[in-house]
Simulated assay, not measured.
Amino acid sequence: MTDSVEDLEIQLLLEALFGRYHYDFRNYARASIKRRITQARQNLGFASVSALQASLLHDPATLAALLGYLTVQVSEMFRDPSYFRALREKVLPHLRTYPSLKVWVAGCSHGEELYSLAVLFREEGLHERTLFYATDINPEALRAAEAGVYPLDRMRKFTENHQKSGAKTSLSDYYVADYGRAIFDKTLRSQVVFSDHSLATDAVFAEMHLISCRNVLIYFDRPLQDRVLGLFRDSLARQGFLGLGAKESLRFSSHAEAFAEFVRDEKIYRRREP
């Protein structure tokens, strides 16, 4: 099979995914999406991408399996601790001045970043006045995030990250160990709204004081990155904050002028006044 035929098959698969289920991966970075579809085809036992597409159109179970490959679900709590330290020391003093807060974790995956922020806000006395929105396009990921259960052997790394973030408590205060699992305190998600939301197709998501979307834009092509950054701009309250991943930037975006660098090294920006 030539590359051109496979590329056409992949394009048709993405069109079918959008037309049948309204999941839009058509503007994701092509090299990444091709690699993920190839892996899915091989692991799910399909001889060709066309065969995978046929199953996708007629068997909803294939959708759930395919989404597991197309969406990135690798994260850890307090990943890049210096980012969370910067939020704690430089962003939260500003957020503290508001009587109520809204925080959006866009592309929340299995919830590691959500629970990191929930713990951070609780340590800083802001949890009870904050409403968190955790969104993802993968329903399985959302269910995992809402459950708040992680393998116990991951807690050592999570705890190290937490301490480096300037922790004021012990991470073990927020979960119980049970048969090799760490089950996080349900009160951490008492202020959380879990919702299906596509950055590729859906509209503005309320008015936020902080949006944290890290290591998601790197999987999008330039036009889709631009769309998403415009969405974030329109979703932020006046002088709201945006946190991106270490390898992400506003530099080449048409929306760059809407944001000012707030903590340059941690890719934290603040919406400029119109």
Rank of each mutant, 00 (worst) to 15 (best):
L66T: 00
A86D: 03
Q39R: 14
R20P: 05
D3I: 13
L244P: 02
N27M: 12
R41G: 06
K267E: 05
N215C: 01
A86W: 13
E248G: 02
A47Q: 10
Y98P: 05
S212N: 01
E9H: 08
C108I: 11
H197A: 04
E273A: 11
Q163Y: 15
V5F: 14
L224D: 09
L229S: 04
D234Q: 06
V91Y: 10
F262Q: 02
P223F: 07
P274E: 12
H255C: 06
Q163P: 00
H58A: 08
G68W: 14
S198F: 10
Y174K: 04
F252T: 05
R41D: 10
A256V: 08
A256S: 08
R251N: 09
T159L: 07
G107N: 01
F259K: 03
G148W: 06
P99W: 13
V176E: 14
Q53R: 15
K164H: 11
A106I: 15
R189L: 08
I211W: 10
H127S: 02
R272H: 09
E207W: 13
A47C: 07
E248Q: 04
A118E: 00
Q53P: 00
F205T: 09
T130A: 04
F184V: 08
I10T: 06
E15D: 12
L92M: 11
Q163G: 05
E146V: 09
F194S: 01
R272I: 06
I10V: 13
M77T: 07
K186L: 14
H162F: 15
Y174Q: 00
E261H: 11
A118G: 00
R270E: 04
L52A: 01
F46S: 04
G166L: 02
D221L: 07
F46Q: 08
M77Q: 01
Q163F: 15
A206N: 09
D80A: 07
H94F: 15
A256K: 09
G180A: 08
S172F: 05
I33E: 06
Y115T: 04
F132E: 01
S165C: 02
E89V: 13
P274A: 13
S249D: 06
A40C: 04
K157T: 14
L13F: 11
E257Y: 11
T97L: 15
G107L: 09
A182E: 04
I268N: 05
N215P: 01
P60M: 07
G148P: 01
A144Q: 08
A203E: 11
M208S: 02
Y179F: 13
S195T: 12
S253D: 03
L152C: 03
R79M: 09
C213W: 13
F84C: 01
E273V: 12
G243W: 12
L236R: 04
A182T: 12
A54F: 06
A144V: 11
L120K: 05
H94I: 15
Y174F: 14
T135N: 02
Y23K: 00
H209E: 10
R233Y: 15
Q239P: 01
E266L: 02
L152A: 10
D153Q: 10
Y83V: 14
R129H: 08
E128W: 15
H197S: 02
T135W: 09
P151V: 10
L44H: 13
S254N: 09
V119Q: 00
T169G: 10
F132K: 00
D234L: 07
A144S: 10
N27C: 11
